[in-house]
Design a protein around this nucleic acid. Structure first.
Lengths: 216, 216, 216, 216
DNA sequence: CATGAATGAGTATTCATTCAT
DNA sequence: TATGAATGAATACTCATTCAT
């Protein structure tokens, strides 16, 4: 697929005037490349991604991505790690929240808030690709684990704070929350008009709160 | 991707001894073809699917899929509709449950029960593909809508039965449930060992019950 | 290597107007393709051979060789077999000789006679390539074995005829003869002017005769 | 070919701690580079050799070979001359033999003795490559001429000694002998198990002796 | 002297697609 | 109706080569 589609013209970015030491240039180039790849994957999917396209879109030559990452899988791995690492993980934007339940609910709301970042979409796509490309598994697993761990910690704090029921398993709950967040993101991408995602988001937060609530 | 992977041997099925009228043969062939395609997509993804492979795996010639469906997108559309129509939607296996909350929770448990069917996997894959292939949208949307409608009906019945809170919006709740079900399926496919999906499933059902519970 | 050399223009043969049944067309095409490949290998070596070039030179599309033989190694194997099988093995052109010593010496002289056939050169080249490409080994081994067997039979007949010494091991002698024939062919290709190959050929035949001669 | 083969890891040698004057370091580096190239050609063929690999295997940077030799052909030329010059030609290991027939037969036996040196293999490969790469011709010709000259001298001495027939042409005979030696080496590399090369070697030496023998 | 960043040309390979049988 | 021959476009990947540090 995606082969016979449109002629990809991959509008080149600024031609990246070479400056700085070898290391600087390398870092600069990697950053641009990964950003371009993230963008393209979000728009055209993994199979709609072309190594040449990535290089061109980043303002470099067609051959550079292969030169750096060896092959397409290598690039995808790098993208996955990049999203995990450098990319401002939305669950991490929690500076303004009080640790515990507030931070948990705030993070969830944040995650579901509309955004222009291509990260979530790309992540979804790479996750799906990992089903068929075993080499991507480690990177993908790590992203998931990290997110689960982060959410679980919030749940645990909320329990410790006495804000939510204490018969909840933080890890399992974190998995459920992450799963829901991801699938809602996907639904939002699929069906932008018919479903009002904001209403659904509110319903989710409300339900979550209710479910976590202490008995009394 | 998925191109340079394994030597595709597409073990041919029984060579399809021609019997019956033209129409019968055609139907028989279409059925085989679509089943083969479903299987292959589940294993290798949409891009790992080749027309020739589908024909061979179904016990026919390399050229038959193109002959029937014109092109690859045509085949994929057919697959999507096939899944929508014939695929034993697990949410539909509700014969044994009492309408209302019991049926809702039973359906959820059913959906999450381990299965060997390739349907869920293929469905996930086709859904993702529809992000980049507009032609698949209608079929994909229909599956989602149908599932949401079915779940919403159960929620509504449960409300009418007085089994759950009445301040719940059946539609939104249905979307949330479906999303969670799908994402848990995906997690199960991704991470078969580390997470005990059965425990998570139980946690989900328990939490769902709690969230829906009437106040008093 | 051979990459940066000359722009390969692979002058296309007659564009192969499609006629005949599927089988006929296929056979015709295979024949043309293998002939073209043989020619090209002789001239540019295995690495100077391009799949596209072969297709074009044979009067077909660039993609046909890969379509038939899967990959370059597959094509080379086919070439090796083709040379062995169909290609008029020069050792076999023995119709006019009396079985035994005469046929042996005649075959040797034949083999060393100047020729326009690209077979010997191509064979040498493919043999060398097999050192690095294990997949070619079986085909290459078979060619050698067949030639050795044929020569050994002649030696044996000559012994039975009482024309040559009977303490000669036919197999080993055949290996030696074949080796010398091949290396003289190679030398002839390498050094066309300085060494008078015809004189060397005569010297070889004379020496061989002397070595085989019965004591008395 | 040989491109898609194994992941080239080119195990780097000791990182070459810089010592000595510029000239010394240059010589040291050249020696390492050529040795590495010889090794690689023997194993992967000329086309399986990459400049980067040579540099790395020699313990230097990827770019050094190009820095020294300008381009790949330049490196190959240097390798060819290196083999010609420094490579311990097995025909030259004659210290222990009496000049004449004994030395001739001894040299032949030496040449055919099993060895672990990569020299012969590389030599064969470079000879073949010279068929398509004219720049390699001079170096290749020189090896051949030198070997022929050396063998011819031995033959001549044997004639002068009255050890062998005097109607033998030393030059032509030398060409025949060298050709046989080379082709037997090649056969040995190709077919290490099935043919007992030692027996064939003995048969060759015996036959050679018989052929050279004076009439009486 | 030596490294390594970056380019870009070249080729194998895969397949959807068309068309004759 | 069904097969399979043949095309040709598209892309991953490799590396020699150039050039700045």
């Amino acid at each position: 697929m995606s082969k016979a589609k449109t002629t990809k013209k991959a509008r080149a970015a600024q031609p990246a005037t070479p400056v700085g030491s070898h290391t600087e240039r390398r870092d600069e180039a990697e950053g641009r490349l990964l950003a371009a790849a993230t963008e393209i994957i979000a728009r055209h999917g993994v199979d709609g991604l072309t190594l040449g396209q990535v290089g061109t879109a980043a303002g470099y030559s067609r051959g550079l991505p292969a030169h750096y990452y060896g092959n397409k899988t290598g690039l995808l791995e790098a993208v996955a790690w990049h999203i995990t690492d450098g990319f401002a993980n939305r669950l991490a934007q929690t500076e303004n929240f009080k640790p515990g339940l507030e931070m948990l609910l705030g993070s969830v709301a944040n995650y579901l808030a509309p955004t222009t970042s291509k990260g979530p979409m790309t992540l979804q796509t790479v996750i799906m690709e990992s089903l068929t490309e075993p080499a991507l598994r480690p990177a993908v697993s790590k992203v998931t684990e990290r997110s689960v761990r982060r959410l679980a910690a919030m749940v645990r704090t909320a329990i410790d704070n006495g804000e939510i029921r204490d018969d909840i398993d933080p890890e399992k709950q974190a998995v459920l929350i992450l799963g829901t967040l991801r699938s809602l993101t996907l639904l939002g991408l699929l069906n932008p008009k018919d479903m009002r995602m904001d209403a659904i988001r509110d319903a989710y937060v409300a339900g979550l709160k209710r479910m976590l609530r202490r008995k009394g």
